[in-house]
Simulated assay, not measured.
Amino acid sequence: MSFNLSNFGYSKLSTKVQIIMEENSKIRLGISIGDLNGIGCEVALKTFEDSRMLDFCTPIIFASNKTISYQMKELGLNIVFNGVPDASKAIDNKINIVNVWKEIPKIEFGQSTEEGGAYAIKSLKAAVEALKKGDIDVLVTAPINKNNIQSDEFKFPGHTDYLAQELQGESLMFMVTDTLKIGLLTDHVAVKDVSAAIIPRLIRDKINIIEKSLMMDFGIRKPKIALLGINPHSGDNGVIGKEDDEIMKPVIREMANMGHLVYGPYSADSFFGSDGYKKFDAILAAYHDQGLIPFKTISFGQGVNFTAGLDKVRTSPDHGTAYEIAGKGVADESSFKEAVFMALKIFKNRTEYQELTKDVLKKQRLKRER
């Protein structure tokens, strides 16, 4: 049976998306709950408060029955859920809660606490293990606090770095909507270290990842990619810095000669204001804020953080813990909902791509055997 998401009022991201579902084969969507003192639980629960969302996937939240019940009471939500011991026992057409812990953690809305960070990581680790085992098909992560998650057991600046270690492939932080896609050469790297981190091999690797993702995850057959310069005005021919001339441009020429549609480096200050980004399928920014400031300015609330390049699909909303409104029941779930739809869309596109690739390889093998 075919469902068009726009028929249910979800048209921003999903006008062209159709989630194809067969009997007993819904996509199993795992959710790590993020910082318990932030808005993660709220936006996840609000997303599935609309029962029509259960037509598209089977949600599996990694937390505990008691924690979710407490959050619902405090937020004034009334949602029926199904508690399960592990993700493999999840039931379709229900909101499933995997009981990762039995104790009742202390929740202090709006506060950054060590306990809030510890339970965010417990949820994330359990969800990633389920993803690796195949008990869930895709993962949507609610926001964490990069400070209070740090411990002897977890020393990563964020989700992306942890997932890169746990899952197969080379990761790319890829901020996406249907009309704007921005990847990062360097993500959680201090500005003073950016230039030293950008070496020819890194540029080649990130171009290859973003190109493959555009083809496999978004159905773009021949992607056209723009690279933003490292320095102001891309160095102004060496006046403001030599990195663009000596590192970026040679790699771009090399890859263009190999048939890749890569262009640049473009001066970042005018690239978005002049609508230059609309001429490309994706943009590769040199560092975090160079890419995320224009992305969030143009697409905030509709954008999705997708970890491209891995063998599993993970998305997240484009906002943080939002402590300032946590526990007040006023958080907007739009970006989390878009992250859900994007994960489903990518999973479907990737499955179809892999099937098509298998068919092509099979035909090539049969042709050689004749």
Rank of each mutant, 00 (worst) to 15 (best):
I104N: 14
P105K: 11
P105G: 12
P105L: 13
K106R: 15
I107W: 07
I107G: 12
E108T: 14
F109L: 13
F109Y: 15
G110Y: 01
Q111T: 07
S112H: 09
S112L: 15
S112G: 11
T113P: 03
A118N: 11
Y119W: 02
A120F: 04
A120Y: 08
I121V: 12
K122I: 11
K122C: 14
S123W: 06
A126L: 04
V128F: 00
A130P: 00
A130H: 06
L131R: 08
L131I: 04
K132D: 07
K132Q: 14
K132E: 15
D137G: 05
L139V: 00
L139K: 10
V140R: 00
A142I: 02
P143M: 09
N145G: 05
N145R: 06
N148R: 03
N148T: 07
I149V: 06
I149P: 01
I149K: 02
Q150M: 06
D152V: 09
E153A: 10
P157G: 05
P157S: 05
P157L: 00
H159R: 09
T160Q: 05
T160E: 04
T160F: 00
D161A: 04
D161Q: 07
Y162E: 07
L163D: 02
L163K: 03
G169M: 01
E170I: 13
S171W: 02
M173K: 08
M175K: 10
T177H: 14
T177A: 07
T179K: 15
T179P: 05
T179C: 12
G183P: 00
G183W: 01
T186P: 00
D187Q: 11
H188V: 15
V189S: 03
V189F: 08
A190G: 11
V191G: 08
K192S: 06
D193N: 15
S195M: 08
S195V: 14
A196H: 10
A197T: 14
A197Q: 15
A197H: 13
I199F: 12
P200V: 04
R201N: 08
I203Y: 02
I207N: 03
I207Q: 02
I209T: 05
E211K: 03
S213V: 07
L214G: 05
M215W: 09
M215F: 07
M215P: 08
M216A: 13
D217E: 15
G219P: 01
I220L: 04
I220D: 07
I220P: 14
I220E: 03
R221T: 11
P223Q: 00
P223R: 00
